[in-house]
Design a protein around this nucleic acid. Structure first.
Lengths: 206, 206, 206, 206
DNA sequence: GATGAATGAGACTTCATTCAT
DNA sequence: AATGAATGAAGTCTCATTCAT
């Protein structure tokens, strides 16, 4: 009798649409019209499922955060050695498989940019990063000792910053050829936690 | 009788205006009217001195790049020890003195965001980063040896990424209290180049 | 097997919904969605029972007119003295009992506003007022004499205008504290029909 | 050299435009496009001179209030007798000369409607009415005695309400033929202040 | 050089109405 | 009868850019 609800599916489609457009054009150019087009929907429908454009972005942030957290969790669980867990955490953030991963990174950078000036985006972006930071801190503590909270947090910050920095440079410059980000971060990690002088894998491209 | 030309001064004022607005609102909200207001000029005048809005941004990128390069150069020259020079380079990028420095960082992050999707901005942004990268690579080579080109470049990339990442996290999260960025980067540097296990200065804030 | 018809009940619910929304937001903001919400129904159902939004408003006007007419009739009948009947008529329009009365007045004012520019609303609004005017004229004639038709109509107009004016000022200004409207109109009536100088009940609030 | 300002003139034109459209279509249908058309301007220009549509309405309210206050003042001053002053006040509100007067009344009614649900409009509308009320109260006190503050205020309210009611009925019904409003209100006034039974001028129309 | 008005495109959003289920 | 999704038009507002003065 009654028409079955399809809101969740539509919302997902719209978020997908934003993800595509965001990765390609950035938030400023991500007009509702374009998002609807990318999702294959009528423009008016977008506002039936989302109160406004911002809500789509917030939903996307949460989706990305969850997806990443899930991926990280899956990989980290597969190792039992604390150091290996740490490596798994970092790899989960940097190993880029397919185009969707690339789009996700581009989106994440764009979201970080939007967070700089939009308080609501900032809120969820910060929350996601702080979760990540807390997780990373815990993993580091497992390596360097539970007592070293402050050190662990400082290292976590450094690593997160390095990751975000590689995202940024990776999407906008040619300083980071494919695969180099992961190598750099792992080298950085080894330097921080094994105390040995580091010799990162060679970087050949410009 | 011709009035004295003041084009350069006006251009500078306009660039200043953009810098203020950009640091506060981001590029999307940096309307010409707002820029003119911040510069204390009439809106129409902006397009007399710049072909379009984008040109102001490009000019700002160059100014920021030059200012930074100059500051770096000044500080690096004051040391003669290669390691100290390296430290000076990094400090020059992270030590935040006054509000203007903070605004400059906010602008730089905003510019990086814009570079993600605007090819012309990307071009100058990349050029600035590649200059910086080349400079940093050279300084690293002075520390680890001229032959180790690839290693030096990889380390340079890692450090630059960590710097940009600290900018990003610093402007959008509370993960990096004042002064922590510099400490983290120096600790990172020492880990990379002295081979000792690193104990960064304690980070107390959330 | 046919389901039992409940069209009339549904229509009433929808009219109730409009009444609530109209009293609170006015007709311009009374979207079908909001009306349906207030009525606890699905938006699509509204157009099943009403051809369009306007028809709901027209139905509401008639309901309010009928309700008022009924209330007036009931009260007027309870008195036998012509002057008392007149008083009853006026009281029936001004004595505000509960919240529903207040909402009804707010609606009536909003309807008057809509009638100014919407011919169909104007038609039913006018019809309601002319009925009221005719009734009032008759009651006045019972007081001042059957022959004085023109005088009676002029007084009726004056009284109706004063009533509508008190509605208007009451809903939008603080010039009319609770209870004052009735006192004013009764004083006005006495002045018109008893020829004595009038001393209305004191008005204390601003 | 510099372009001369014409903001005041343009603002007036836009307010004129709104006045025309408001009198004809009401506020809900008074789109910016229509207002601009009525004013003979490009739509975009409206927002150059007014922050938003509401500000035009607020400006119109103030203009109408000022115009009326001025007209009233002018007429009231011409008489020295307190009773005559009172008559002048009322006539100034009801005597409708030309089309512009009619438009002004239609606008005023529309504004009253808008004031019912828009707090900002309500504010200026109330202020205008309270000024009018204060003025009228003072004039009444000159007739019935300075001491009778409360009585004077109650009468003032009654008269203002009757005036607004005549506006309302006049714009939406055919109960008030031309000239009748003034007659009714004057009859009402005489009834209130001279104590004599009132025989208003005959009302012939339906 | 400088001012401020003017233009028109395009953004976000709301909404009455229709329709598939 | 009833539900809720879908559509497309229309509205308000912002803005880069142009232009008369």
């Amino acid at each position: 009798m009654a028409r079955p609800k399809n809101t969740d599916a539509r919302r997902d489609e719209i978020i997908d649409g934003l993800m595509q457009v965001l990765a390609q054009c950035g938030y400023a150019k991500a007009s509702v019209k374009r998002i609807a087009e990318a999702a294959g929907l009528a423009p008016g429908l977008v506002h039936y499922h989302f109160k406004n454009k911002l809500q789509i972005l917030l939903a996307l942030v949460e989706r990305l955060a969850e997806t990443t957290a899930l991926r990280v969790e899956t990989r980290v669980e597969q190792d039992s050695d604390p150091f290996a867990k740490l490596e798994a955490f970092l790899s989960a953030h940097l190993a880029r498989g397919d185009d969707e991963d690339l789009a996700a990174v581009a989106c994440w950078v764009a979201i970080g940019a939007e967070a700089q000036f939009n308080p609501e985006v900032a809120k969820v972006y910060r929350a996601a990063l702080e979760d990540r930071h807390a997780h990373l801190t815990a993993l580091i503590q497992d390596v360097i000792g539970r007592r070293k909270v402050a050190t662990a947090r400082a290292h976590a910050t450094t690593l997160l910053a390095a990751i975000e920095g590689h995202y940024q440079l990776g999407t906008t410059t040619s300083l980071i050829p494919a695969g180099q980000a992961e190598k750099n971060i792992h080298a950085l990690m080894r330097a921080l936690f094994t105390g040995g002088a580091v010799r990162p894998s060679l970087q050949t491209s410009k």
